[in-house]
Amino acid sequence: MTQNLMDETATAPRQSRGSGAPGGGPLAVAGSLWGRYRNMLVPVLALVGLVLYFQSQSPAFVSEGSAQNILRQMAFLTVLALAGTFVILIGGIDLSVAANATLAGILIATWIDDYGGALAIAMVIAVGALVGLANGLITTVLKVPSFLVTLGMMSILNGISNQISDGGPVSFASGLLQTLVNESTVGSIPNGALIAIGLTVLLTVIAFATSYGRHLYAVGGNERAAALSGIRVRAVKLSVFALAGAIAAIAGIIFTGQASTGVPMGADASLLNSIAAIVVGGTALSGGIGGPHRTLLGALVIVILGSGMDITAVDPYTQLVVKGIVVIAAVALTIDRRRYGVIK
């Protein structure tokens, strides 16, 4: 078509965003790059900064033992945070992932000796997916905001977990989980961490290289426009909640494998950490921005922050304060303020 127009396009200078005047020198360029890549740079800089800081405080921080510890914690937290990532990506939130993981942890401990490893694991993941599907159905059919549905679901699941376990730990004899989660096949990396990394890669490929993944971004970016461009929004939402439940169940299995016993309320305390990991990684609570790869990065930041504070002997109550501040700061940095009204 019009050749002139195209030439203009090709030679048009990259527009700088923000307040920088056109051709406003290196500062404006830096500002523009910062604006575009902010969500990616924040967690990377935080990670590097944290490692350098804790290393300067305590030479024991970068060591074989501490790395093992970090990888173990990272395995569970990453998988739990991956469960919530797609839900946040489509503009919702799932507060029941941790309680769902706890239930899965109890169920695997209860079932693994009776049904055998493979079947028990499959059943547990199916239960997790069903719980997620229930979240999705209530959200889409009854049109109840997801944060409220999943808050209620969290309480329901807590109750069920305690009923099944009678409020006490559930022990089991099978050594399968020990092999699957704690032993190492590659170098000295625990298998749990490999599962977390593998799952991150799988979900990242789904997010970026399948129609389904692109539809998640579309629904999170503008639900109405997604529906009007032919995306079956309800089906997408249902599947995302179900997937979240299934992944939360995997997180629960990892948790029980690491604890080598089923613990009621076991994973519950990790809810805030998992949301922190997602948001610190740069997936915006307003939806449509981010992805599973970011969650892995965010989980590393949160775990290193926690274990660094342990090593430098920050008391646990102060740690809670610090983590709360980190979550709020991360949300403040990543949220899309144009769409602030969307978040209830």
């Binding site: 971004y217 579309a218 970016g221 503008n222 426009a225 009007l228 449509g288 921005i289 144009r338």
Partner: peptide, 9 residues
């Protein structure tokens, strides 16, 4: 803006 675009994409 309301019906067609994914503004941040």
């Amino acid at each position: 803006a309301r019906d067609s675009l994914f503004p941040n994409a």
